[in-house]
């Protein structure tokens, strides 16, 4: 093999490796779902609406369960789990639970904590503890460990046919409503689901459970 060919091969190989590295960095480390920016309304409060779906037909992982957030400007459902809110502000959260049930691994997380009043409304009914073992009636949780927030999400009845296209706009679902105060300290507070809902991964703890944009995300608190 002549010297120019060897040098050319070397350069091409180097460029391929560099391109692969760049792809990995951009795709896995720099990729970030969009951030929904919420500002306080005239009442000084913020209203957020989210939904959790049994699948995700708008991404490259259609079989992963996922949360969606309703864009406060367009009113459309965006596939993201990052939202920005003002500090020391009351957040009125509404979450539509379209996904079916999965019992909590640790029933301790069936207790509502960190909300104003220490309760949530599940389909309009005040609830302080959800027993995920009694009737398989908990789908996920919405938990922000940094502020002690933990809210179990109810699920549609066992016999219901779940919504099959995301984001869900119709179909059986539970409605959870609760309020909490954002912390005075600005910063990023991660939130997560505490039910291992990553089907297809070891004990359900992989995939959407470990990926921002699906069952975990960030609450960015700004001044």
């Amino acid at each position: 093999m002549s010297l120019p060919v060897r040098i050319g091969t070397l350069i091409v190989a180097f460029l391929l490796v560099a391109a692969g590295g760049a792809f990995l960095v951009v795709h896995y480390f720099l990729f970030k779902p969009p951030t929904e920016v919420f500002n306080a309304g005239p009442s000084g409060q913020v209203n957020i609406t989210m939904q959790e779906d049994p699948q995700n037909t708008v991404s490259t992982h259609p079989d992963w369960v996922s949360y969606f957030i309703k864009n406060p400007t367009t009113g459309k459902w965006d596939h993201t789990t990052i939202f920005q809110v003002p500090a020391n502000t009351r957040i009125n959260m509404t979450i539509l639970g379209y996904d079916g049930c999965t019992p909590l691994r640790n029933p301790f997380w069936g207790k509502v904590t960190g909300t104003i009043g220490g309760y949530e409304l599940v389909n309009g009914k005040k609830v302080r503890v959800l027993n995920s073992y009694s009737g398989c009636n908990v789908g996920h949780t919405f938990s922000i460990p940094g502020i002690g927030l933990n809210v179990p999400m109810g699920s549609p009845s066992l016999s219901a046919t779940l919504c099959g296209t995301s984001p869900c706009t119709s179909g059986p679902h539970a409605v959870m409503q609760f309020s909490f105060m954002t912390p005075k300290a600005t910063g990023t507070y991660f939130w997560q689901c505490r039910i291992p809902c990553g089907g297809g991964f070891i004990d359900g703890f992989g995939g959407p459970m470990q990926t921002i944009g699906f069952m975990t995300g960030n609450m960015e608190v700004v001044s």
């Binding site: 079916g100 049930c101 999965t102 019992p103 073992y133 398989c136 066992l158």
Partner: peptide, 12 residues
């Protein structure tokens, strides 16, 4: 046991 029962009940 309670969890297993719930799983079965949920068809999971």
């Amino acid at each position: 046991k309670q969890m297993s029962a719930a799983m079965v009940k949920g068809g999971l």
